[in-house]
Amino acid sequence: MIFNLYGIFMSDSYLSNRNSIRQKMRSLRNSINAKQQQKITKLLIKKLVSYLPIIQAKKIAIFLSIDGEPNTKPLIKVLLEENKQIFLPVIKSYVENDLIFINYTPKTPLILNTFGILEPIINKDNILNLSDLDVMLVPLVAFDRKGQRLGMGRGYYDRTLQNWQKYNFLPIGIAHDFQLVEKLPTAKWDIPLPIIITPSHIWQW
């Protein structure tokens, strides 16, 4: 029997379906060449910086791209130039494998975590209280026409987003256009997103 991180049983066919979508999308993401990625990045930045919730936001959580995700480094540079406070995620096992977010500037030292992702060194004075956050930009592997999100399968963002309305920040997914699928296999622990932005479209639910 196979159980997820919430202790809920998942069938082999259910896992296989989700994993096949992940494999396909990750393969597509990693097939993008540097020139295409640069074009995608410019289009996404243009959409994001002209989107009202981003314009109004003062504190924005964002991720550092890996695995063919849309490149967020130029976006971070633009947001910092617009005097936004930027926060990067850190995975910490002592808080039940949830994410915490650390203030980031170009001088912030970064280290590789166990998944090969750069993250800030934890400084207790720079940890963000989620209730102080305005916008969280969220990575995803695939999404569907109802705003359901498929992540990498570890559940970090699902757990972090469980009470986003309570904390009163706005989660916004960032994706390539091709990451849209008609319908994702979902479970009760999956957290849909109210907004997903791709290079050609702003999806809102």
Rank of each mutant, 00 (worst) to 15 (best):
L75S: 01
P89I: 09
Q56S: 12
K146P: 00
M10E: 15
P199V: 01
K73H: 12
N97V: 13
K42E: 07
A57R: 02
P53D: 04
N113T: 04
V181H: 11
L52W: 05
P120K: 08
I174D: 00
N126Q: 10
M25H: 02
S200C: 03
L99G: 03
L79E: 03
R149G: 07
N97K: 11
W203A: 10
L110V: 04
E96H: 15
I111C: 09
L88D: 01
L28S: 13
K183E: 09
E69C: 02
D132N: 05
P53M: 05
P194L: 07
K35I: 14
V78R: 06
R154S: 10
I100D: 05
W203M: 15
Q204T: 06
D144G: 09
A57C: 00
Y104L: 03
I117D: 00
G116C: 10
E182K: 12
N83W: 01
R149C: 11
V181M: 14
Y6F: 14
P106K: 02
F115E: 02
G151K: 08
I91T: 11
N71Y: 06
D132E: 15
N103D: 04
N30C: 13
M25C: 12
K73Q: 12
P120F: 07
M10W: 06
D144W: 01
L88C: 06
L44P: 04
L184H: 13
P192M: 08
A175E: 15
I121H: 07
E69I: 03
N97C: 10
G7S: 14
M1F: 13
L112N: 14
I86K: 07
W205D: 03
L15C: 15
L150K: 00
L99Q: 03
I32A: 11
I2N: 13
L28I: 10
I55S: 06
S11D: 13
D134S: 02
M25I: 13
I8M: 11
R145A: 14
W205A: 09
A57Y: 00
Q162S: 12
T186P: 08
K124F: 14
Q38G: 00
L48K: 01
